[in-house]
Computed example of a mutant assay.
Amino acid sequence: MDSALTTVGLPLALGIIMLGLGLSLTPDDFRRVGRHPRAVAVALACQLLLLPALCFGLVTLLDLPPLLAIGMMLLAASPGGTSANLYSHLFRGDVALNVTLTAINSIIAIVSLPVITNLAIDYYDRGDTVDLQFSKVVEVFAVVLVPVALGMLVRARHEDFARRMDRPVRTGSAVILAVLVLGIMLDQRDSIGDYLAEVGLAAGLFCAASLVIGYVVPRAAGVREEQAIASSMEIGVHNGTLAIYVAVEVLDTTEISVPAAVYSVIMFVFAALWGAAISRRIRADGPARVPAP
Rank of each mutant, 00 (worst) to 15 (best):
residue 80 G to H: 09
residue 81 G to T: 08
residue 82 T to V: 15
residue 85 N to R: 10
residue 85 N to C: 12
residue 86 L to G: 02
residue 87 Y to I: 07
residue 87 Y to T: 05
residue 89 H to V: 00
residue 92 R to T: 03
residue 92 R to F: 03
residue 93 G to V: 08
residue 94 D to S: 11
residue 95 V to C: 04
residue 97 L to M: 06
residue 97 L to D: 08
residue 99 V to D: 03
residue 101 L to Q: 06
residue 102 T to K: 04
residue 103 A to M: 13
residue 106 S to Y: 08
residue 106 S to R: 09
residue 107 I to F: 14
residue 108 I to G: 09
residue 109 A to S: 15
residue 109 A to N: 03
residue 109 A to T: 12
residue 112 S to Q: 08
residue 112 S to Y: 01
residue 113 L to C: 05
residue 113 L to I: 05
residue 115 V to N: 00
residue 116 I to L: 15
residue 116 I to F: 12
residue 116 I to Q: 13
residue 118 N to K: 05
residue 118 N to Q: 14
residue 121 I to N: 03
residue 122 D to H: 10
residue 123 Y to K: 13
residue 124 Y to K: 02
residue 125 D to V: 09
residue 125 D to F: 04
residue 127 G to W: 02
residue 127 G to C: 04
residue 128 D to R: 11
residue 129 T to R: 15
residue 130 V to E: 07
residue 132 L to P: 06
residue 133 Q to W: 00
residue 135 S to V: 14
residue 137 V to W: 04
residue 138 V to M: 13
residue 138 V to T: 11
residue 140 V to Y: 02
residue 141 F to S: 02
residue 143 V to D: 04
residue 144 V to Q: 03
residue 146 V to I: 15
residue 148 V to F: 05
residue 148 V to R: 07
residue 149 A to L: 14
residue 149 A to Q: 03
residue 150 L to E: 02
residue 151 G to C: 09
residue 151 G to W: 04
residue 152 M to L: 06
residue 156 A to S: 15
residue 157 R to A: 08
residue 158 H to W: 15
residue 158 H to K: 12
residue 158 H to F: 14
residue 159 E to M: 04
residue 160 D to R: 14
residue 163 R to I: 09
residue 163 R to E: 13
residue 164 R to E: 12
residue 165 M to W: 11
residue 165 M to F: 13
residue 166 D to S: 13
residue 167 R to P: 00
residue 168 P to T: 07
residue 169 V to S: 03
residue 171 T to S: 06
residue 171 T to C: 00
residue 172 G to H: 06
residue 174 A to I: 05
residue 175 V to H: 01
residue 177 L to S: 07
residue 177 L to T: 09
residue 179 V to C: 13
residue 179 V to K: 00
residue 180 L to D: 01
residue 181 V to R: 00
residue 182 L to G: 09
residue 183 G to A: 08
residue 183 G to R: 10
residue 183 G to I: 09
residue 184 I to W: 01
residue 184 I to Q: 12
residue 184 I to L: 15
residue 189 R to S: 14
residue 190 D to V: 10
residue 191 S to N: 12
residue 193 G to D: 09
residue 194 D to L: 10
residue 196 L to S: 03
residue 197 A to I: 04
residue 199 V to C: 11
residue 199 V to F: 08
residue 201 L to R: 07
residue 201 L to W: 11
residue 201 L to V: 15
residue 202 A to V: 07
residue 203 A to M: 05
residue 203 A to P: 02
residue 204 G to N: 11
residue 204 G to R: 00
residue 208 A to D: 02
residue 209 A to T: 14
residue 211 L to Q: 07
residue 211 L to P: 02
residue 211 L to A: 07
residue 212 V to E: 01
residue 212 V to Y: 01
residue 213 I to K: 00
residue 214 G to M: 05
residue 214 G to Y: 04
residue 215 Y to E: 06
residue 215 Y to V: 05
residue 216 V to A: 13
residue 217 V to A: 12
residue 219 R to M: 10
residue 220 A to L: 15
residue 220 A to C: 08
residue 221 A to F: 12
residue 222 G to K: 10
residue 223 V to S: 08
residue 223 V to W: 03
residue 223 V to D: 05
residue 223 V to C: 06
residue 224 R to G: 12
residue 225 E to S: 12
residue 225 E to Q: 14
residue 227 Q to E: 13
residue 228 A to C: 12
residue 228 A to K: 02
